[in-house]
């Protein structure tokens, strides 16, 4: 039984020279492998606010809040870092070339206050001119219009929002009235009011 002792002794000597196997973590920051799946981060320039990530998220870690303020309507995209499981479904489902939300290498997510455990970005929202309910994010409509090409002229919401964006049409055009009629079809409308103005006999 001398041999095991020699074996252990060499291991001990080796450890003396090379130092412990464990890393000196708090002093020396840990850098994750490039393949590591870390916290997903929104890219405010690429994200179009389509909510595909919220729909696929298995942990319900992505949410949104629509602020329907007529002066500054906006959609707040929220990522709850405490419930996120870093699976990457959001990145895979992202319609903006998988760049609207991307997994980063960030792993150091400890916090003291749970309300800090969220990341938000804001997207400009378009409201229905009749009821004031959100139609979609401006970037999302732009994204759809770009892909539809000339077909986007079949939807007044699409081309009006696009023309407004480009500053081609006058801002003073009359908004749809609350007491809508069939003539209000060519306005920026939500799905429900598009249907109702079309079917209206007024």
């Amino acid at each position: 039984m001398k041999l095991p002792k020699v074996r252990e002794l060499t291991e001990a000597l080796k450890a003396l020279i090379t130092g412990p196997y464990t890393s000196k973590f708090p002093k020396k920051p840990h850098i994750a492998h490039p393949n590591f799946r870390g916290q997903p981060v929104f890219n405010p320039d690429k994200c179009v606010g389509c909510l595909a990530c919220e729909y696929v998220c298995p942990a319900e870690a992505i949410g949104h809040e629509d602020i329907k303020d007529p002066k500054n309507p906006r959609r707040v995209m929220i990522h709850y870092t405490d419930t996120c499981i870093f699976c990457g479904c959001c990145e895979a489902a992202c319609i903006a070339d998988n760049e609207g939300i991307k997994l980063s290498n960030e792993w150091d997510l400890a916090f003291f206050d749970r309300s800090q455990a969220q990341e938000t970005i804001e997207k400009e929202l378009l409201l229905c001119e009749i009821c004031g309910e959100p139609v979609a994010c401006k970037d999302h409509l732009k994204w759809i219009a770009e892909r539809l090409g000339e077909l986007s002229y079949s939807s007044p919401t699409l081309y009006l929002s696009r023309l407004k964006e480009l500053g081609i049409i006058d801002d003073n055009i009359i908004a749809a009235s609350r007491d809508y009629s069939r003539s209000d079809r060519v306005k920026i409308l939500c799905a429900r009011h598009r249907r109702e103005t079309t079917l209206s006999t007024k």
Binding site: A32, H33, N35, F36, R37, I85, F86, C87, G88, L103
Partner: peptide
């Protein structure tokens, strides 16, 4: 570590 390189996580590989 190998699992982290292959799947991106040490456990729960998704």
């Amino acid at each position: 570590d190998v699992m982290e390189i292959l799947s991106g996580n040490r456990n729960s590989y998704a």
